[in-house]
């Protein structure tokens, strides 16, 4: 299939209307449909390329075909420059994928963010994840000016205002509101651990309808957190998706633990990797086991597989875990992915 004969009946001529919106849904998107239908959802993260080549995005996304319900396009993760989240999402919606636009408050102020929010919805994006963002010092441009005009909670409030009140923050009217399913993040594994459920409550109060968490390698801490979340009634108010990671070796795990902000990996996981004959396989087994355990926890709505530089193993881990049961998430028909190639 070449760029000229995309089946418009399937993709839609207007990328803003990929599917009809169902009763009681806030977005047109497939991701919201999966969660609201009560399925255990699987999401993953695409690493935006250091390239202007749209093919690269499609090749990376195709690795997840049939295994995930939504793909997060990171926004300058770790304060490193890559292709923008908005552009990655726009390329993915062309094929009908269900990308999650990540917005970090580090690089843009409220004027820019509101403009991008409208633009994303116009390009067919149905999901947004509100993040505060890593500090610029963590990345390859530590001399950059950090913006942080909003924080993740104000950002969710902003998008909620645009969608539900149909106005900008200034009160100026929107002709068509951005119909986005709003998400936020949570890290139950770092201090103040006893207040993390209260923090989750604030995120939900600000507008979050689904949550994606930081890596979970510590089940007891998660179970405590979920039990508090259930006591506060939060699992009824938002879909809580827990992050899982694919660790390739004990060395990488140790490096991540001490260098990536907010990553908590208990010693027993590291020992397991050290003692394994095939550490890479062991890392995938650990991930699949955690996913199975997540599915058993009351109030956990899905798993978010983060496999940076291990993306080719996401399918393997999902299959191994069996969390999807008989369900096969939507994927586009195979294409030759030459759409938009600059030659």
């Amino acid at each position: 299939m070449s760029s000229t004969d995309i089946d418009v009946g399937k993709v839609g001529t207007n990328p803003g209307d990929p599917l009809p919106r169902l009763e009681g849904h806030v977005s047109h998107g497939r991701f919201e449909r999966v969660l609201k239908a009560g399925h255990f959802a699987v999401t993953t993260e695409i690493a935006p390329p250091d390239s202007a080549d749209p093919d690269e995005v499609l090749v990376r996304a195709a690795m997840f075909d049939g295994y995930v319900d939504a793909i997060n396009a990171t926004d300058g993760s770790g304060a490193h420059c890559h292709m923008s989240s908005l552009a990655v999402c726009a390329i993915l919606t062309r094929l009908g994928y269900s990308p999650i636009l990540q917005i970090s408050c580090r690089d843009r102020n409220r004027i820019s963010i509101q403009g991008d929010t409208l633009g994303a919805a116009a390009l067919g994006v149905c999901n947004v994840l509100c993040l505060t963002g890593d500090d610029v010092g963590a990345g390859d441009h530590p001399e950059a000016k950090p913006v942080f005009d909003l924080d993740s909670i104000s950002l969710a409030q902003t998008i909620r205002t645009m969608r539900d009140k149909k106005t900008f923050l200034s009160g100026r009217k929107l002709d068509l509101e951005p119909r986005l399913f709003i998400g936020s993040s949570i890290n139950p594994f770092v201090p103040p651990i006893e207040n993390r459920a209260d923090q989750l409550a604030k995120k939900i109060a600000s507008g979050a309808e689904y949550i994606q968490s930081q890596y979970c390698f510590d089940m007891p801490v998660l179970k405590d957190f979920m039990s508090r979340a259930r006591d506060l009634g939060l699992t009824e108010e938002a879909f809580i998706i827990i992050g899982v990671g694919v660790l390739p070796s004990a060395k990488t795990a140790k490096w991540m633990r001490s260098n990536v902000p907010g990553v908590h990996i208990p010693d027993d996981i590291i020992r397991r990797l050290e003692q394994a004959e095939k550490p890479k396989l062991e890392g995938r087994k650990i991930c699949a086991e955690i996913m199975q355990q997540l599915k058993e926890i009351d109030g956990v709505a899905g798993a978010h597989v983060m496999a940076y530089r291990q993306e080719q193993w996401v399918g393997d881990v999902v299959k191994r875990s069996g969390v999807l049961g008989d369900r096969k998430p939507w994927a586009p028909e195979k294409t030759d992915t030459t759409i938009g190639t600059v030659s």
């Binding site: 505060t132 500090d135 950090p146 942080f148 924080d151 993040s185 201090p191 103040p192 600000s206």
Partner: peptide
Amino acid sequence: PKTIRNGPCGGVRAN
């Protein structure tokens, strides 16, 4: 450093 008004962020160290 991120002037968060509804914190903390998810990057807090274990200590």
